[in-house]
Amino acid sequence: MTFQQVFGYEPAVRYSAPGRVNLIGEHTDYNDGYVLPFAIDRRTTSDIAPREDRVIRVASSFDPEGGPVSLSLDDLDPARMDGWSAYVFGIAWALREQAGADLSERTGFDVFIDSDVPVGAGLSSSAAIECGVALAFTDLWELGLDRKTLARVGQYSENHAVGAPTGIMDQSASLLGEQDAVVFLDCRTLDTAVVDLALEANGLEVLVVDTRVEHAHATGGYKARRDSCEKGAQVLGVPALRDVAVDDLPRAQELLDDETFRRVRHIVTEDQRVLDTVRTLREQGPRAIGELLLASHASMRDDFEISVPELDLAVETAMANGAVGARMTGGGFGGAAIALVDREARDRIAAAVTAAFAAAGYHEPNVFTVHAAQGARRDA
């Protein structure tokens, strides 16, 4: 399925935006903390053509029988948005509501979405749609908004139009990513720094193990963790868990029930692990971050309780077969794990993980490598 097949003519422009892998820093984003994601060489494309009326029509390769879905710019409202098309319509709505764009004199678009970012794997296929569309609409409507503003637009859309209570990390990575580098993001100030990964120079690759256990952020597990974090911050009297130091954890344990304390402990220690990873990358390089990745996984498994047996098996098997480090990545309750591996060991480790899943009676995982890539862009 293509734009031409759906709409009967050729698109005017193509934009694309990448999915992302979070190297470390999970669930810290909505706690005003630190994250360290990178854009990946799996992208979502948006073929677009302007219309003469005020209608946006959207179609996609992953909904081939649904046909285009239409919504007028005069009717932009989350109550009128449903399913995957909300990721497109929501951006137009958020540009108006969050960024203050005047859409009263704008015309609409025909939009066709295609993607090779795996859905449900924790690689942020949703942000890839949002960021490509946000950049396209901003350019074509000549709104003059910068990429940090577009990251906020994408988050606002996902929170309020889609209904997923996510932070700003995914959109920031998809918009600000650079080749062979990670984006060090302070989620409170939105200050960013690009930090060299230098994987190629060190003979390393990132192996992704998509467990094929699908998750959905709009459902209960993610929201429950966020609610626990907000409860912990309220009891501790801080604006967000970003403001709790590792040294404050003994006091937190006295004040909080066990479950809430463990949720808080993950966030506080994960923030510190992000800072430690940035320092280690800068001072020692990527081969020195393995223990930090493992500690992050253990914290997500035991304190935040968002791992699943398939993710644990992927991490354990990768490490047993020589990975430098490994952890689950993404929101949890399924999705993917990542392993930092020597290039020459990649195929052996991938085969070992696949064999371990078969022996455990799990679905066969989708195992592939990703490379840190450029963020959202106009392609044609």
Rank of each mutant, 00 (worst) to 15 (best):
Q253R: 15
A337E: 02
P50M: 08
A94R: 13
A355H: 12
T269V: 07
E142A: 15
L281P: 00
R226C: 12
D258G: 11
Q284C: 04
V246E: 09
N202V: 03
R147C: 00
G237S: 01
R54P: 00
P239V: 08
I91N: 08
P309C: 00
V194P: 00
W141P: 02
I48D: 07
Q234M: 03
T28R: 05
G108I: 10
R43S: 03
L292A: 12
E26K: 00
A128M: 07
L71S: 12
E178L: 14
S61W: 10
V194D: 02
V195N: 04
E97T: 14
W141S: 02
H371F: 05
P78F: 14
V353G: 01
A216T: 12
M169G: 01
S228T: 03
A318Q: 07
G90S: 11
R327Y: 01
G331T: 09
Q5Y: 01
A359Q: 11
R43Y: 11
S60A: 15
G163T: 13
Y34I: 03
G154S: 12
L190K: 01
S228H: 14
S46W: 07
A198L: 07
R51G: 12
A173W: 06
R42Q: 08
S296R: 02
D77P: 03
D210H: 06
R301Y: 03
L249C: 08
T189A: 06
T149P: 00
L36K: 03
H27A: 02
F304W: 10
R251C: 00
S60H: 10
N22V: 08
D379L: 15
A101P: 09
I40A: 05
N366A: 10
Q284A: 05
G232R: 10
D32Y: 06
G220R: 12
D248E: 06
S72R: 12
F7P: 13
G331S: 11
T192N: 09
T354A: 15
D47R: 14
M1A: 14
T2P: 01
A326G: 00
P365I: 10
P250V: 13
H160I: 05
F109I: 06
R96Q: 15
D74C: 06
G33A: 05
S85Y: 11
Q4G: 10
E178I: 05
R301C: 01
Q171E: 09
M300K: 02
G25Y: 05
V195H: 05
F109Q: 07
V235R: 02
R242W: 13
Y156S: 04
E52W: 03
E65D: 15
A181V: 08
G203Q: 01
T369E: 07
F184S: 03
T260F: 12
E316A: 12
L255W: 05
T192C: 09
